[in-house]
Design a protein around this nucleic acid. Structure first.
Lengths: 327, 327
DNA sequence: GTGAAAGCGCTAACAT
DNA sequence: ATGTTAGCGCTTTCAC
């Protein structure tokens, strides 16, 4: 059917082993044979069968990626970072959405292993991470992390603090923190950090709960201003929720930022195109993905690193949903 | 290292061939041996090596998916549809973003083949589709399609017409169509259809160009109202552009929908959370992905279908960026 | 009904 | 410097 290494061997008048050697730059090969082989490869447009390679070597060029839900714009940004970095090194990505279901995570993990993936990058909740520890291939956690495994993530405490500080500096007196699901660690951390910071600042604090998804956020947020009509500063757990809040604010006749200031979290692309532009805490999602890919590649290449925890910096991105009172 | 079929065979006191038979429900197996084998499998937690299977059978359980850019929210919706449908049947997804670069598409295609994928789902521009025709595995085009290959897509002409009709019905007299890149076929088609429909309606038509991406749309759109200050109805080539336009409209002091009405295209999640909510032409992205997956599976199973072109319906989703004048 | 043997395409000893 | 051989884990004839 397809062209095999034997076809190339025949064409070049050598053995399959020789072709393999020039292909992999392993062992000796006379310059002339080398040329002949390369010519044959070119002529037949031969592409080695990765499956056969994988079977023999017990390792593929595949990396498994498990994400909660690619439909949430933060994750595609991570995924692109991973993919672009991986491609450079000849690796490919098998991707799986878990929808936060343990069962699906396990399912994907199993099939990743069955496909001889050489490494796994995953974003899972703490409670789900057990099976990741017993894998005998490298694992790097991304965004959602746990202590005992290598990880790449953004500085949630700093982010939470930054957001809180800003909203206080901006002059808000009654601040509502919108807390996402507490099972999602980074989201919980930013909440805690914001809360503590606000506490110290001595402002009035409200806590309001919301889902993270589009649908969920939109619903959750509807009662926000009924419950806290006088809130003039809002810290949202992510940008989606923040945009939903902006919507609700405007719907109830509030001006942004004059009446309510809003700060999001993540800096997904939407922030820049909504009106008014959404001020937010930027997580370098793409870079996080790329970093995770870089680490996994190093591990695959046996460069044994310590249990590395790579914390990337966040930053406040100022747009129009915030403005210093009096400016 | 990992548990192989031989381990199971030993455990069950049978040969590997027998294990294989019960595993695949092929050939005979005495009920008792069957049970013994199943027990052994369970006891050892054996999972067959898909790579070995793939090598022997010359076909894997992998499907390749090529998308322009997963960072554009329309595509994750497609991808989820594909993935969810595929998972049900035990298939897994290798995913690649092409960024519309022919080179990257070819690159991914090559490595898909090298990994023995059994089918490919792709969203590529017409000019890039040549190499897809010469593959000897099933291909289904998704969203961006060409005549000569099986395809799943939404009815762009109907969508374009619908949008145009609506904006006229709504009472707009000077309508601006924002045209995306003409190389992107569905985008071009909806433009043509809108344009024709508007033509027949005898309203004043402006045509304005924009990129499709967040960044691109945001920039492109900045001069829109300088150029057409009196436009009171806008047909955007996609929702991202539409939101960027809403931004620009509000920035220039226009009220939506009182001063300008805006209709987007796609119905991505953002539409629902922005303020005001964006009226749009809905493409059933998730269903499109699922349908493409369904077709590719059928083809993989040799159910030879004709060169199927599956056109899914679009619909107008009314939100707050449009309102009948006088209402 | 079950086992032995061959082979998918490749690579890594081991010979030569 | 190159070829021969064996084997990665699986499935499928083909004997029995």
């Amino acid at each position: 059917m397809a062209i095999t290494i034997r076809d190339v061997a025949k064409e070049a008048g050598v053995s399959a082993a020789t072709v393999s050697r020039v292909l992999n730059n392993s062992g000796y090969a006379h310059e002339d044979t080398r040329k002949a082989v390369l010519d044959a490869i070119h002529k037949l447009n031969y592409k080695p069968n990765e499956v056969a390679r994988s079977l023999f070597k017990q390792k593929s060029k595949l990396i498994g990626l498990i994400l909660p839900d690619i439909t949430n714009p933060f994750f595609p940004a991570l995924a692109r970072g991973v993919e672009d970095q991986l491609r450079e090194e000849g690796y490919r990505l098998i991707i799986g959405n878990s929808d936060e279901h343990l069962e699906q995570e396990i399912d994907y993990l199993d099939t990743f292993i069955q496909h001889n993936v050489v490494g796994i990058i995953a974003s899972v909740n703490e409670a789900h991470s057990d099976m990741l520890k017993n894998l005998n291939i490298p694992v790097v956690l991304l965004d959602r992390t746990i202590e005992s495994l290598p990880a790449v993530y953004a500085d949630q405490f700093e982010g939470g603090k930054l957001a809180a500080r800003k909203i206080v500096e901006l002059g808000c007196k009654e601040i509502t923190i919108i807390r996402g699901p507490v099972e999602v660690k980074p989201v919980y951390e930013r909440f805690v950090s914001s809360f503590q910071t606000l506490r110290q600042a001595g402002v009035k604090i409200n806590v309001f709960d919301s889902k993270l998804s589009f649908q969920g956020a939109s619903n959750s947020v509807k009662t926000l201003f009924d419950k806290y009509p006088n809130t003039n500063g809002i810290l949202a757990c992510n940008d989606i929720v923040a945009v939903a809040v902006m919507n609700e604010a405007q719907r109830t006749g509030r001006r942004i930022p004059e009446d309510v200031q809003i700060i999001g979290f993540d800096d997904i692309s939407i922030c820049e195109i909504v009106y008014p532009g959404l001020s937010t805490i930027r997580q370098p999602a793409y870079e996080m993905g790329a970093k995770a890919a870089e680490i996994i590649i190093k591990k695959v290449k046996q460069e044994v690193l310590p249990n590395i925890h790579c914390k990337l910096p966040v930053q406040f991105v100022e747009r129009e949903s915030t403005r210093k009172v009096g400016d």
